[in-house]
Computed example of a mutant assay.
Amino acid sequence: MTALTWHTEPLMYDFMVRALVTTCIAAAACALLSCWLVLIGWSLMGDAVSHAVLPGVVIAYIVGAPFAVGAIIAGFFAVGLIGCVQGTNRVKEDAAIGIVFTTLFSIGLVLISITPSQTNLTHIVFGNVLGVSSLDLLQVVVLAAVVIGVLLLRRRDLVLYAFDPGHAHAIGLSPRRLGALLLALLALTSVVALQVVGVVLIVAMLIIPGATARLLTDSFGRILVIAPLLAIACSALGLYISFWADASPGGLVVLCQAGAFVLALLAGLRRRRSRRV
């Protein structure tokens, strides 16, 4: 098998083309948002919201509504529930997040187990990017465009909120509203990535690209460029490997991103050692 065949043969299949386009778009949206999640320290919040959308998706299937609608509602519900639990002043944020996301995720698993279905609902948990339809692709494109557009339009305000919420408040911005905006975008992005890697691995796509880019540069502007490009490259590589190895595409996409993180980490350690010498 030649290198040309390795690159071109997967593109002869429509399902692979749709999978590549869907995965790259989803990866770009997740990577861009991950820059803020990593900077603010919301990794656990990303985990919570990504797992909490599961019952919403299953309920949407039961009532015959689009999966995206159920996932978005469940995501917003999870965010509000975390705020209510934390607002008691007796439960810390990390505990509130852990309680809410494990409870909602468990509800989703129970609903899957008791819901009679001709559709394999476990695809919600593990993803089914190779089964993406044209309608699914359109949904991902629209939601990703909303997420990326809002992040770029409000980039300066969100960067200021991440670095210095007090200063943001002093110049007339509302840290509470900016935080709520990020949480809303997190819920939308979870829906975008749901089709690609499933509920279980969404958090990886929401954290690894931003963390990797942070290891490569201290400039937040460059992080916003490196993270999406790196995520897209890893997504394409993961899908190609899955095609030829006949393995899980979602799992390989995340493994490629994890491999990039390890390489960036090792490169950073090497630079530190060389400076000491």
Rank of each mutant, 00 (worst) to 15 (best):
I82V: 06
A180L: 15
G259E: 08
L158Y: 03
A144V: 12
T189K: 09
R272K: 07
A247K: 01
L183N: 09
A144G: 12
L135N: 14
A231M: 07
R155D: 06
P228T: 00
I72N: 13
Y61G: 05
A204I: 02
G108I: 11
V57P: 03
A29N: 09
P116Q: 06
W36T: 12
A3F: 15
T22G: 00
H123R: 09
G131Y: 00
V200L: 15
C256T: 08
M205I: 14
G250M: 09
I148H: 09
I207Y: 14
G251K: 07
L181C: 15
Y13Q: 04
C256Q: 06
L201D: 04
M205A: 12
L224P: 04
L178H: 06
A168G: 02
L183T: 07
T189I: 10
L143S: 11
V200T: 09
L230W: 02
G149D: 08
A227D: 01
L4W: 15
L37D: 05
L137A: 13
L265H: 13
L37G: 02
L81S: 10
V69T: 15
A96H: 04
I223C: 10
L237M: 07
A180K: 10
T8E: 14
L104N: 10
L230M: 07
P165T: 00
V146C: 12
V199L: 01
A26N: 00
D14P: 08
S235Q: 04
F105E: 12
I202G: 03
G41W: 05
R156D: 09
V192R: 00
L255F: 15
T5F: 13
D218A: 13
V125Y: 00
I124R: 06
L109D: 03
V142P: 13
L201A: 01
I223L: 07
R156L: 03
L182C: 02
S34E: 07
S117D: 08
L183E: 09
L137M: 14
Q195C: 04
P228E: 00
I114P: 11
V129R: 03
P175N: 03
I202D: 06
T22P: 02
A227N: 00
